[in-house]
Design a protein around this nucleic acid. Structure first.
Lengths: 159, 159
DNA sequence: TTTATAGTTGACTAATTTAGTCGGGTTTCT
DNA sequence: AGAAACCCGACTAAATTAGTCAACTATAAA
């Protein structure tokens, strides 16, 4: 999995549809307007979301996109996976065992592996419904030890 | 916090020093050689690590860098913070409350906020010593629900 | 049947970020 | 003195991201 703003935009757009809660499809210009994302860019994202089976498209005059499943059955991790496709250029993509002739090279392999599992676990636990109903807070402790102020967190480029 | 290869390189280099476990400083060319990172690039990273008080430098002929504290007292989160400095260009950096005139804009704010806390919590839990002693595995469940295969995870660019 | 709406596709581009390189210093030990 | 190492800042090439654009296709309402 990969975390970029693309993934965040996709989740935002999906949340927008979910929040509408209607049976009638939501058009991209509507979403673009409400969420401040360019319509052209949304097209790209929704093409992938459709291919991943997360949304159904309705063409024609009153068309748009609709969630393919109830919001409670769509996990955030699926959305992120759908738009941020994996490219396997990893230096050490083997099992955590020997990993590139052992040595010091992959001392940290297990660490990032484990972090990845943490993130996947979290994102696969939260559903779209949880997000729009604001049932997300409180899963992790409020402050990490050390007493520093908790800032925003940014993956890829910027948040 | 931000997660890029820079942060991973820094952790890797710190782990290299920690793994040496000697009182005598480790030189950058040594680390560059063992970890496959260019020495010039390491200089940049170590300048920041030094400024953050994570390493002490020893100049002169047999000089190099040394951990400023025992490996058990250096948390991974500190290392990442030291090299991947924060830029606050966030659209909504306010509290999770209203956040940009309420509306649908920040439906997902809490989600990323919470994910950030998860990550910070995890990285602040693990010490450099844990990493070199391979005591990292097992904190998260091995598979997420859903049965998909767990792939690598990549933050910024590539892993 | 026309026409407008809306999705679909793919190519293209500008800006940003990342991951370095390079060259010249300065300090310190032998 | 001289070598080894750190220190600093400017520069750059590659990759990625975010976004634009134009042409095309399908659908439904008038």
């Amino acid at each position: 999995m990969k975390l970029t703003t693309k993934g965040r935009y996709a989740v935002q757009a999906m949340a927008d549809i979910a929040a509408a809660r209607g049976a009638e499809p939501v058009s991209l210009p509507e979403i673009a307007d409400r969420q401040g994302i360019s319509a052209g860019y949304l097209e790209q994202l929704f093409a992938k979301l459709r291919r991943a089976g997360l949304v159904d498209s309705v063409r024609g005059v009153a068309g748009g996109y609709r969630l393919a499943r109830p919001a409670g059955a769509i996990r955030i991790g699926e959305i992120v996976d759908a738009v941020d496709e994996e490219i396997h250029t990893t230096a050490c993509h083997g099992a955590a065992a020997g990993c590139q002739g052992a040595g010091a090279r992959c001392l940290t392999h297990d660490l990032w592996d484990e972090l990845g599992r943490h993130i996947e676990l979290f994102l696969s636990t939260v559903s779209l419904e949880d997000v729009i109903d604001k049932r997300v807070i409180g899963t992790a402790a409020v402050n990490a030890p050390g007493g520093r102020h908790q800032d925003d967190w940014k993956p890829g480029a910027e948040v």
